[in-house]
Design a protein around this nucleic acid. Structure first.
Length: 572
DNA sequence: GCCGTTTTCGGCCCGACTGTTTTCAGTCG
């Protein structure tokens, strides 16, 4: 875990402990906001400390800057340990229980000596807990129901799993009579790599009835809330789904509000209020008068801004860019002309070359590259040079047989631990597309793994670096590579960095790809598909790229075949 | 605790739902 992540976590926990101590809510928010912005930071916080510009991080003032310095220099923050003498750290986790907030937790802590989850469970089963004002049996039951939920849903859900689920729920909502304009909002609309819950917005003139019917849909396991304009349920998969129902006159306001992010909305509302406007989920108001609300475009337009694409709404400078007329013209799925990274039965894929090609044609692609593994990836059935040559013959035959798509001969070549590549140069030279990737030795130290990858980028026959940080979302930490050096080297040697669209990877991630294209590095967005259906995951990579402010001009596989091929051949 | 083309002090986004209230507090997003 990087220092950034560690410090953000500590600040977040301090915020939680302060909330249980009933401290100034704005102080609590200050800690939370700082934590968020440190996570968003696209560089190592140690570098900030050594340059002495920690306070340039939004939400970090003198006090928090000192704590950051203290952590970087000594490895701990005294304040953090001091507060723990008042509130045990374990208590902060209990805040994750649905329906249990800081006030109730403070009460249980003070009056009934709750110090842990175990204590809490005991207390909830006793009678004493009912002796307090504002705490009844229903509340106790709600908290009890929340405990197993906390245990099972620690992790956020992968976008690649949540998106199809959200789309199927959207269809069911569309089937409710009288609904219109149903849309998936929230972090899914922003294409965040993981999501906590599914947010659906719909229009209806009988909002209460629509919410009622929603809570009775077959996928609903449990109803958390059901009111006159919104409902919350848990699905059989254990994911929370929130439905918001509004009239057509408020659709834009609700969509804007419901798409978030929270940070984006808070900033937008703060700016609006400085200009005499008030924003809520029904629209924009000047005094009592409603001045916008029907469409999102109108909402942003009223504030003098162009419509900001959902993927950018993270308070990462998009509002400033919008007001200065320099929003990027984001890449779209339809810009993609081909897919340069996929596997077939020749290594660990499930489909043949021909099947992959036919699927790619369905998607309207001009070209694909078949990039099976190299020999060192033995568990992935990597190809020996002999099998590589056999594969080339088959590929040539299919190219003759199938018209309308160019099938390129490629390989995803292992970068070995010493930085050398898994095929000799004279073999690499004969390939149309060479993607170099790390598949082993993830634990090397920063210096070593960075040097190792830099060596691969220096090889003249390499086109792109595959899944550059090696992370698996919710599964494996990225290897400790210096991303700045990778970007520098990619630029110097004219190599592409990959945005791998596999929902488990999404690597480069949004912040990194933004840094890369800012520096002028080209990227490829590819699926790493191991079966035909996975070619459709391209949209996840596009989402990640859009979150990274990527434009069509930054992406090599938006080029027509001729132009792409010219670039590929420049590496020979 | 942060921050400043309204401010270095006095603000800090805004509303829905629920439960235990008889006008609101707590929680959530």
């Amino acid at each position: 875990m990087s220092k950034n992540t560690e410090i953000a976590k500590i600040f977040d926990q301090i915020a939680s402990m302060l909330s249980i101590l009933d401290e100034n809510p704005f102080k609590i928010r200050a800690y939370k906001k700082a934590a968020l912005n440190i996570l968003e930071l696209n560089e190592e916080i140690e570098d900030r400390v050594s340059r002495d510009d920690v306070t340039d991080i939004p939400g970090v003032g003198k006090e928090l800057a000192n704590k950051i310095k203290e952590y970087v220099e000594t490895g701990k923050i005294e304040e953090y340990h001091k507060i723990q003498e008042k509130v045990p750290l374990e208590m902060t986790e209990l805040l994750g229980i649905l329906g249990l907030g800081p006030k109730t937790l403070a009460l249980l802590y003070k009056e009934l000596n709750v110090r842990s989850l175990e204590d809490l469970e005991k207390v909830l089963d006793g009678d004493e807990v009912l002796n307090f004002k504002g705490l009844g049996q229903k509340k106790v039951d709600e908290i009890k129901r929340g405990i197993p939920l906390l245990k099972e849903s620690r992790e956020r859900t992968h976008l690649g799993k949540a998106l199809p689920l959200a789309e199927s729920i959207k269809k069911e909502v569309e089937n409710i009579k009288g609904t219109e304009g149903t849309i998936v909002a929230g972090s899914i609309r922003r294409m965040r790599e993981t999501i906590k819950d599914i947010d659906i917005l719909t229009i209806s003139d009988n909002t209460e009835k629509t919410v009622k019917e929603f809570t009775k849909l077959p996928f609903v396991k449990e109803v958390l809330a059901s009111g006159s304009t919104k409902g919350s349920v848990i699905t059989n998969e254990g994911i929370q789904v929130d439905l918001r129902v509004v009239g057509p006159e408020s659709y834009g306001g609700a969509l804007q509000y419901f798409s978030g992010s929270q940070a984006h909305n808070v900033k937008l509302r703060t700016i609006a209020s400085k200009n005499g406007f008030r924003i809520n989920e029904y629209g924009i108001f000047k005094g009592e008068e409603k001045v916008a609300g029907e469409t999102e475009k109108e909402m942003y337009g009223t504030l003098g801004l162009p419509l900001i694409p959902p993927e950018l709404r993270e308070d990462r400078g998009e509002i400033e860019a919008a007001s200065e007329g320099r929003l990027p013209d984001l890449i779209e799925l339809s810009d993609i002309k081909g897919d340069l990274h996929m596997h077939t039965k020749w290594s660990d894929g499930k489909a043949t070359i021909q099947e992959m090609a036919e699927k790619a044609m369905e998607l309207g692609y001009e070209y694909i590259a078949i990039t099976d593994h190299s020999p060192s990836s033995t568990i992935a059935n990597g190809l020996s040079i002999e099998r590589l040559n056999e594969k080339r013959l088959e590929l040539r035959e299919i190219n003759k047989k199938i018209k309308g798509i160019h099938i390129l001969m490629g390989s995803e070549v292992d970068i070995k631990t010493d930085g050398s590549l898994d095929y000799p140069d004279e073999v690499l030279k004969e390939l149309d597309v060479v993607i170099a990737s790390v598949h082993s030795g993830f634990k090397m130290d920063r210096d070593a793994i960075t040097k190792r990858i830099l060596m691969a980028l220096e090889n003249p026959y390499v086109h792109a670096l595959g899944h550059p940080t090696g992370r698996l979302i919710n599964g494996r930490e990225p290897y400790d590579v210096d991303i700045d050096q990778l970007i520098e080297a990619a630029l110097k040697h004219d190599k592409a960095l990959e945005v791998n669209s596999s929902y488990l990877r999404l690597d480069l991630k949004d912040l990194h790809v933004r840094k890369a294209v800012d520096a002028g590095v080209k990227v490829i967005i590819s699926t790493d598909a191991h079966r035909t259906q996975q070619l459709l995951q391209m949209r996840l990579g596009i989402g990640t790229a859009r979150r990274g402010w990527v434009q069509k001009k930054d992406v090599l596989n938006t080029l027509e075949f001729g132009a792409l091929n010219e670039w590929l051949k420049s590496k020979k």
